[in-house]
């Protein structure tokens, strides 16, 4: 992210005044106050990250000390069909989940951005799944999508449509997971959009109305640009969490049926913590990290074309 602020054409922030003139006492105090955070950063973030980079170049079974193997783990990784399939599964999930959740969250936010009685109740209702644990959500999802006893198949039956196997159907498992994830996550993003909507000055809508702008045009030319900053935030956050998604799949399908819902982090977890291949798992983590970073950079680059900060 700091890379981007250094791009030409952008106004750089003026460098702070040289510290030399200040009293050293201030620096000591600053260090004293910053030290808990610095220690935390070094001990619990920087050190493990660097260690995992080293492990990714080793064969490390957690029991005997790591043995340096160069880029072997990465060679194996890129040749491993299963790894590519997990990446494909993850991407498929993201492609369904990210737009669906973002659009739905915006629509809900607009619908709930009204002065109506009991509005707080509606907003809370959409927020309940957000604070529920995945284990609870998995039970709810099973009540809906269970091929034998679920409500979804009953509804299909009333409509005269054939019953589906949902989470047990290799073709439907990812769309079903994405639908459940939207249900669980949409409330949070809705709240972000609500905040964004409320930051749009009311007088813009009034002016547009006086000029005779239609409801669609007010949405298109005032609301959408008005929440573009929020939309960007929502997109970046959801993309990152999607690529790292683990808990939902771990709890709901554990990669079944036959690996059709095995996402990359689940694959990483299995190799690291079940199959004693921490070196290989670290390599997976680094590939995933590079992918997340690349995706985020692309999003930051594209944002200039469509994000307006009022």
């Amino acid at each position: 992210m700091t890379l981007l602020t250094r791009k030409p054409g952008r106004v750089a922030v003026a460098p702070p005044a040289p510290l030399r003139g200040r009293r050293t006492g201030e620096r000591a105090w600053a260090l004293a106050f910053a030290s808990p955070y610095l220690l935390h950063l070094v001990a619990l973030t920087a050190w493990p990250v660097l260690a995992s980079l080293y492990f990714s170049l080793t064969e490390y079974n957690l029991i005997t000390s790591p043995r340096f193997v160069g880029l072997d783990n990465f060679a194996r990784l890129f040749a491993d069909e299963v790894f590519w399939r997990t990446l494909g599964n993850t991407a498929y999930f993201a492609v369904l989940f990210v737009p669906a959740q973002t659009i739905l969250a915006l629509l809900l936010a607009i619908a709930l951005n009204q002065r109506l009685r009991a509005m707080a109740l509606f907003r809370a209702a959409y927020f309940v799944p957000v604070v529920s644990s995945w284990v609870v959500v998995a039970y709810v999802a099973d009540a809906v999508f269970n091929p034998q006893f679920g409500i979804a198949n009953q509804v299909l039956g009333w409509l005269g449509l054939p019953a589906q196997d949902w989470l047990q159907d290799p073709a439907l498992v990812i769309p079903t997971l994405a639908a459940v994830a939207v249900w669980k996550g949409v409330g949070y993003m809705m709240v972000l959009f609500l905040a964004g909507l409320q930051a749009i000055p009311e007088d813009r809508y009034e002016a547009a109305k006086i000029d005779g702008a239609s409801a669609w045009n007010r949405f298109r030319y005032i609301t959408l640009p008005g929440v573009s900053g929020t939309t960007f935030l929502v997109l970046v956050l959801t993309s990152i969490t999607t690529l790292q998604s683990f808990e939902q799949v771990f709890v709901m399908t554990n990669g079944e049926p036959h690996g059709a819902s095995e996402v990359t982090v689940l694959y990483l977890y299995r190799h690291g913590f079940q199959f004693f291949q921490m070196g290989y798992a670290s390599a997976v983590a680094w590939v995933l990290f590079v992918l997340v970073l690349a995706l985020t950079l692309v999003q930051f680059r594209l944002q200039r074309r469509w994000v307006h900060y009022a």
């Binding site: 050293t24 006492g25 000591a28 105090w29 260090l31 004293a32 030290s35 808990p36 220690l39």
Partner: peptide, 14 residues
């Protein structure tokens, strides 16, 4: 004195 304080804080945390 302040530098000592900072060092002490780091030491305690370590």
């Amino acid at each position: 004195r302040l530098r000592m304080l900072a060092t002490a804080a780091v030491a305690v945390l370590t």
